[in-house]
Amino acid sequence: MTPAEFEFLSGFIRARSGISLADDKIYLFQSRLVPVLSRHQFSDIAALVRSLRLSTSGPLADDVVDAMTTNETLFFRDRLPFDHFANRLLPGLLARPGRSGAIRIWSAAASTGQEAYSLAMLCAEARGALGGTRVEILGTDLSPAALARAESGRYTQFEVQRGLPIGMLAKYFTKDGDDWVISPTIRAMVKFRSFNLLDSFSPLGRFDLIFCRNVLIYFDIDVKRMIFAKLAEALPDDGALVLGSAETVIGITDQFTLHPELRGIYIKTRASQSGRR
C-alpha cells in the first residue's frame, strides 16, 4: 500500500465511521483487505483504491468499511466486567428504588453478538433474582455483516470454546452440523440493529446500563468526548458505563467517573447533569 493509498483509505474510513486508522497498523489493514480483493475481483489494493475513488458508496465501500472496522470478539471477553455485571451491577439495578418496567442494556459495539448473548445468559442465570422483571438487550454495530452473524446466533466450534464455560454451552446452545446455535430463550432477550456511534442516540431510547468496550480507542479525542456526552445522556443519574480494559475517561471527560470499587466501570457524574442544562 502506498502512502497515498493509505491516506485515501483512512480518509474514507474516517468519513464513513469516524474511526481513525493509525498508520502503524498498515499491515493489519492490508491483511484485512485481502478477502475484499478476492470477493470483488481486484488484483491488488491499488486497483481497489482506484475503484473506490470513483464511487465511495455501494457494496465495495460497505465491504471495505466492514473489513477495516469489525473487531473480533469472544464470549465473556476479559471475564471481569461480566463478573461485575452478575455480582454487582444487575443486583444494583434490581434494588434501585422506584424501578419499574424492563431493564434495558446496550451492547454498543456488539460485533458478532457474543457480548450481548453473554449478558443475556447471565440474566437467565439470575432468573430467580429477576423475578418477573424483563431484560431487553440491544446490540448495535456499524457492520451489517457482523450483525447478520449476531442475528443468526450461530457460532463455530472454535468460537464457542473461547471464553464460554462448557456448562453454559451445554445449557444454552444446541448443536447444528458443525456449528452451535444459541437457544431461542436467550435469542429472544436480544435485539440487534445497525448503528453508527456518530449519529444521534435518541432513536435508541434510554438505557439502565451501557457496555461500550474496545471501540472508543479508534476515535479521536474530540469524537470520544462527544460520544461520552451522548452516552451520559442515554443513562439515568448514577448510571454505569462499562469500558474496555485499556480504556478510560480520565483526561477526556468529566461526565463519568471511576466506580469506587469496580475496575473498568464508570459512573455518570453530576457534572454531566449540570452540563445538560
Partner: peptide, 11 residues
Amino acid sequence: ENDLDHITRAI
C-alpha cells in the same frame, strides 16, 4: 466427541 450428549455425560 463433540455432541451435547457426550458433553453432558462428562459434566
